[in-house]
Design a protein around this nucleic acid. Structure first.
Length: 423
RNA sequence: GCGAUCGUAGCUCAGUUGGUUAGAGCGCCGGUUUGUGGUACCGGAGGUCGCGGGUUCGAACCCCGUCGAUCGCCCCA
């Protein structure tokens, strides 16, 4: 016997209730996205490596060690997408979608990151994604967040709050960053090992360190608000008042920064409330939906300066929060009581007629007659219909079992089909 | 990349300080409950105890390695 190959680490085969929950998330997203008139876009799963390296930031962990990169036969370095935004930006530029600007785009699909798998985190994972490109106004941020908020509500997810921050414009962000470095460098020796390293690579990240040693110094660290330009402040005020008007609840998160270089102004995450049921289900992964404004991204890919905002959410994480979803019930189970040609065709034909009229049907025609009934009963079918023959081999009229209303609905469907045949 | 815990039947798990042919439930297949049938009962198939070494008269159990899984750290959705 040849050995069965193992699945790749960090990949998942999703089935049953989990797969139903996954589908429910995607279907709900598709429905909500249409309500906000986001247009569907499909993109390649892989790109030239530089697309991600240049836009996400060379020094980020994603680019430096988490990308699935490989050389193709022509010797070009390609990478399985670790996120959507960079690819969408590339597509926007290479297809001249400026002509549609401002344009609202939505997509979903698999992403890849070479990371150690754990609860709510995989090497191949899936996201839903929404972007507004070419809109500089804070109203775009508001609309995008309103959609996220509505999506979570329609998924029935509770105990999750929008954490909101601003990183200011490019200058504000740089000034803040410099002040933070000064602040933390003064106490460098007392910081955790991780944060000493972050000081060089990504000082903003020290702000949400989980280490107690760092948290003492985080409290009195410089705040972004001190460095905001008037424009940046006005922008953020417009976003928050817009959210209030739209009825989207939010809370200020002064130390919320996002990992990627391209963020400016608005940054946000939807995070389960401390101690909530949702928080428990997610383990140590807390963010279920995150994003922000990335006004500088297009330029890093050689395009004209183009304002944009977007977010992405992990489908697996959302699916964990929507909980078990049962598959739709079987409506009609057709049991064939023997193995003659006549009986089998009767069963197959009946199921076909039912399905043509939108009634979910399945035929049970394997194993002993007793097992067929057992399986039909266990299938949870609302109506069981049995075909048998009399002693002389004549097909008997089918017998139906189930609630009167259910039987009537199935019978009605079968009659409808017969009527159409006659016309 | 680092740490902790765990790998026994298709699935969920027992397996007493190391001691005969490794068990149960569910699922699957066949049958009985002398008619139609979610019950109950009987029987059957199915296991290199993750893999490789070692210790021992003897290893599912102890030791080392390795692979995998889970959870956490880093980072992130």
């Amino acid at each position: 016997m040849p050995k069965t190959p193992q699945a790749i680490r960090g990949t998942q085969d999703i089935f049953g209730p989990d797969a139903e929950a996954f589908a429910f998330v995607v279907e709900t997203f598709e429905r909500v996205r249409k309500l906000y008139r986001f247009r569907r876009v499909e993109m390649p799963v892989f790109e030239k490596t530089e697309v991600f390296a240049r836009s996400i930031g060379e020094t980020t962990d994603i680019v430096s060690k988490e990308m699935y990169s490989f050389d193709d036969r022509g010797g070009e370095s390609l990478t399985l997408r670790p996120e959507f935004t960079a690819g969408i930006a590339r597509a926007y530029l290479s297809n001249g979608w400026q002509q549609y600007a401002p344009v609202k785009l939505a997509t979903h699909g698999p992403l890849f990151r070479y990371e150690r798998p754990q609860k709510g985190r995989y090497r191949q994972f899936h996201q839903i994604d929404a972007e507004i490109i070419g809109a500089a106004e804070p109203q775009a941020d508001v609309e995008l967040l309103a959609m996220a908020d509505q999506l979570l509500k329609e998924l029935g997810i509770e105990g999750v709050t929008l954490h909101l921050n601003t990183l200011g414009d490019g200058d504000s962000r740089e000034a803040w960053r410099a002040a933070l470095v000064d602040h933390f460098r003064a106490v460098k020796d007392e910081l955790s090992e991780d944060s000493q390293e972050r000081l060089e690579k990504n000082p903003l990240r020290i702000l949400d360190s989980k280490d107690r040693r760092d948290q003492r110094f985080v409290a009195d660290a410089p705040k972004i608000d001190q460095f905001l330009s008037d424009d940046a402040r006005a922008f953020f005020d417009a976003v928050t008042s817009g959210l209030d008007a739209a009825g989207v609840k939010w809370q200020r998160a002064e130390s919320l920064v996002r990992g990627l270089d391209y963020y400016r102004h608005t940054a946000f995450e939807f995070i389960p409330d401390e101690g909530s049921e949702a928080a428990g289900k997610l383990g140590s992964q807390s963010t279920i939906l995150g994003g922000g404004r990335y006004d500088g991204l297009m330029e890093s890919l050689g395009g004209a300066a183009t304002p944009a905002v977007g977010w992405a959410a992990g489908i697996e994480r959302l699916a964990m929060l929507v909980g078990e979803r049962e598959e739709d019930a079987l409506e009609l189970a057709v049991v064939v009581e023997g193995d003659t040609e006549q009986l089998h065709s009767a069963g197959v034909r009946t199921a076909m007629m039912a399905r043509s009229e939108g009634v979910a049907a399945e035929v049970f025609a394997a194993g002993s007659p007793r097992k067929r009934f057992d399986k039909a009963v266990k299938s949870g079918a609302k109506v069981i219909m049995a075909f048998g023959e009399d002693g002389e081999g004549n097909l008997q009229a089918p017998r139906m079992k189930g609630d009167e209303a259910d039987i009537e609905r199935v019978s009605h469907a079968l009659r409808e089909f017969a009527l159409k045949l006659r016309d």
